[in-house]
Design a protein around this nucleic acid. Structure first.
Lengths: 246, 246
DNA sequence: CGGTGTGAAAGTTTTCACAGCG
DNA sequence: CGCTGTGAAAACTTTCACACCG
């Protein structure tokens, strides 16, 4: 932060008002994940070519993606890991903590309550709700399960902006409606159904069976782009495949 | 199956050898999911426009996507749900059962072992492995946890072709190596790391923190295409957002 | 009519290739 | 040199629009 810099600025925000392709943002998360790993391993700088190779993208794609948000590199050197990490987190919005409301505390919900990966990226499940009154009052992973009736008030009181739906498929839409009514701005939905939401509420779906379906197809057939394992030449690198929001 | 048909054929395989875009296949899974819901609700036929509206896509996109695989519709009528479901499952490869090997039976692994959604789409977790010898021998959800040493033999004996990695990030690459050595053809990876895999092994990544990161960005900013919740006009439909393979 | 299937046009994303910088 | 940042070209995907069918 207090480093003397020569030229690179880090606007860290969409730069122009040009809309950023969704696919670029999904790669940003991968860049960040890899950069954090590299930094932890002691690497100070990295070039677009190296970063791309690690993830199965071209050097040009890495540079173009970053170019949507500013100029972060040093010609002849590459990018400084620490700076780029900070910039990515600024862009993705994870330099500040996010509170998340979980609805549905079954097997999967309980596992997610204990998942350490959220905290590492600055997400905290701040409240959890379940329709089953037998669960209400239990404390799981330090969180007291609340009844659905308390959802709206708790969400407002804690200033929660994101929700996570982990209920059975039949209860998902109602859970979504409650979260929306409480003022949540985005929802991650683990139920295998397409939610009906107002346009101002963002939505990411994770359908575990669909991930396997995509693999089933890929194992059987050839795809056009970045299919299944992708990119990379020769030896053994794995490229990357992420499921794609449902 | 014994219906008299007029004209529609259902090639159900890539039709020509033209490679199919990955994004098309991901939408196929969504079409299938929606069709199954509609059929369960008693609907017999559906038009491309209706199906598209339910998922936030255009009618033309639905028709183009299906067009990669054959001709399934009846002009003036639409598609018969039962026929289209069967065709989609043939294409995705889920008309026959798949056995999956799970590596790592922690909180998340145990939750996935009990997840009913896999079975509904013809996936069965047929074996589970863990490095923790205290877990080995336990029976969870009807599956006996085996030591990693038995992975190769079990995978071969059971003819398992797909693997699922649910170990901590530091153990993921080794788990992948073992699965690959055992002859698995595709891997779903829940660990937040990019695996190095041979090119012939397909790979889908699910990074739970990245899903939230994408939401964090979407809530903060405007995206270009299918951003967060997308598509649809007026009232309240939710479009669809699936995360995108890592 | 209402709706499919499909070329052709429009729009978007990726790759190329190169000027410029330290 | 090695590597970034970026216009311009190429590739790919989506939308349009219409012939054709029951």
């Amino acid at each position: 932060m207090a480093e003397p810099r020569t030229q690179p600025a880090q606007p860290s925000e969409p730069l122009s008002d040009a809309p950023v392709p969704k696919v670029v943002v999904s790669r940003l998360s991968l860049y960040l994940r890899e950069l954090q790993r590299l930094e932890a391993a002691g690497q100070q700088t990295i070039s677009s070519g190296q970063l791309g190779t690690l993830l199965g993208f071209s050097d040009a794609q890495v540079r173009k993606d970053l170019g949507f948000f500013g100029q972060f590199g040093y010609p002849g050197v590459g990018y400084r890991c620490d700076e780029l990490i900070r910039a990515m987190r600024d862009i993705l919005g994870t330099n500040h903590p996010w509170s998340v409301a979980m609805v549905g505390v079954g097997n999967l919900g309980q596992a997610l309550l204990g998942y350490r990966g959220f905290g590492r990226q600055n997400f905290a499940i701040a409240a959890a709700f379940d329709a089953d009154l037998a669960k209400v009052g239990q404390v799981i992973q330090g969180i007291r399960i609340q009844p659905l009736d308390e959802l709206a008030e708790t969400v407002r009181t804690l200033g929660i902006r994101l929700g996570m739906i982990v209920v059975p498929v039949g209860a998902a839409q109602e859970a979504a409606d409650r979260l929306v009514a409480a003022g949540v701005e985005g929802i991650v939905n683990f139920a295998p159904v397409t939610l009906v939401l107002p346009h101002h509420v963002q939505n990411v779906g994770v359908d575990l069976a669909i991930e396997l379906e995509q693999l089933s197809f890929a194992v059987t057939t050839k795809l056009t782009r970045a299919g299944g394992t992708d990119a990379d030449e020769g030896g053994g690198r794995a490229g990357n495949g992420h499921a794609g929001a449902v």
